[in-house]
Amino acid sequence: MSIRPDHELHSRRLSRNVGLGLILVTFVALVFGLTVVKITEGDVARAITGATANE
């Protein structure tokens, strides 16, 4: 069976899938970043050590 070139439909679906993937990764990054900022008032070092803003 010979290899057939991708139909244009596939490139459209690929762009949707890649786009959605990037959005999901961005969403995770946003939630993670917000969590760090809210809990540690932006001090990433404290986030890594597990300390909260009140400590």
Binding site: H7, L9, S11, R12, R13, S15, R16, V18, G19, L20
Partner: peptide
């Protein structure tokens, strides 16, 4: 839209609904 063998061949390209890109 599902892809059929004939779609792969391009013989019925005009009948395929245009799918959205991102």
């Amino acid at each position: 839209a599902s892809i059929t063998a004939s779609d792969f061949e391009g013989s019925h390209k005009s009948s395929i609904s245009v799918e959205a890109e991102f």
